[in-house]
Simulated assay, not measured.
Amino acid sequence: MDALQQHLFDSYRAARQGEPAPPAPGTHDVAVLRGLRDRRRFERVVAGRPATGRLRAALARAAALLGRR
């Protein structure tokens, strides 16, 4: 059973029991990804490492190298 079929099944069951319908699949995906990103940043800070991402750090190093020339 895929996510859409499960959602339809849950919506039908909720309607029969007079409960509110569940959220559609994918509704909270962005919030979950933000939460994961924030958790990783928090863990890096607690561990004493910089909270910047790898790409941002690599771009900063490249900019510093280009600025020296």
Score class of each variant (00 low, 15 high):
17 Q>A: 11
28 H>D: 11
24 A>Q: 12
60 A>G: 03
10 D>G: 01
29 D>Q: 00
22 P>R: 01
42 F>S: 11
44 R>L: 15
66 L>V: 06
48 G>V: 11
15 A>Y: 07
56 R>H: 11
21 A>Q: 05
65 L>C: 02
18 G>H: 07
27 T>W: 10
52 T>N: 11
39 R>F: 00
69 R>Q: 13
47 A>D: 08
61 R>N: 07
32 V>K: 07
47 A>Q: 06
7 H>G: 02
30 V>R: 15
17 Q>K: 12
2 D>L: 03
56 R>F: 04
15 A>F: 05
16 R>S: 03
18 G>K: 06
7 H>S: 11
39 R>Q: 02
66 L>A: 13
28 H>K: 05
65 L>H: 11
58 A>L: 07
24 A>F: 15
30 V>K: 13
39 R>D: 00
64 A>S: 10
6 Q>P: 00
51 A>Y: 07
38 D>H: 09
69 R>F: 14
63 A>R: 13
23 P>Y: 10
52 T>Q: 14
25 P>F: 02
52 T>E: 15
54 R>E: 06
10 D>F: 06
67 G>D: 08
52 T>H: 13
15 A>S: 10
62 A>W: 10
60 A>V: 07
52 T>P: 00
27 T>Q: 15
22 P>Y: 04
55 L>V: 09
45 V>W: 09
43 E>L: 15
62 A>K: 09
15 A>M: 02
2 D>H: 10
21 A>F: 01
14 A>V: 05
23 P>S: 07
66 L>I: 05
33 L>A: 14
55 L>T: 13
11 S>L: 04
40 R>F: 00
54 R>Y: 05
8 L>T: 08
50 P>W: 12
46 V>I: 07
59 L>R: 13
34 R>W: 01
23 P>T: 02
63 A>D: 12
57 A>Q: 07
13 R>A: 12
63 A>P: 03
55 L>F: 12
52 T>V: 10
51 A>L: 04
13 R>L: 09
38 D>G: 07
19 E>P: 02
30 V>M: 05
55 L>R: 14
45 V>C: 02
36 L>P: 01
68 R>E: 06
31 A>F: 15
35 G>I: 02
21 A>V: 06
31 A>S: 15
41 R>Q: 04
41 R>G: 01
46 V>C: 09
13 R>I: 04
24 A>E: 08
19 E>T: 01
18 G>M: 04
49 R>T: 00
59 L>M: 13
34 R>L: 02
48 G>W: 13
59 L>N: 14
4 L>A: 09
68 R>Y: 06
66 L>K: 13
37 R>F: 04
39 R>P: 00
51 A>H: 08
18 G>I: 03
18 G>Y: 03
40 R>Y: 01
61 R>T: 09
50 P>I: 10
20 P>H: 04
43 E>Q: 15
36 L>F: 06
53 G>H: 10
56 R>E: 14
31 A>N: 12
28 H>F: 09
48 G>R: 10
16 R>L: 06
54 R>H: 05
10 D>P: 00
24 A>H: 14
64 A>W: 09
1 M>E: 09
7 H>T: 02
34 R>S: 06
31 A>V: 00
42 F>G: 05
29 D>C: 01
7 H>E: 03
43 E>V: 08
48 G>Y: 12
15 A>N: 06
40 R>V: 09
60 A>Q: 08
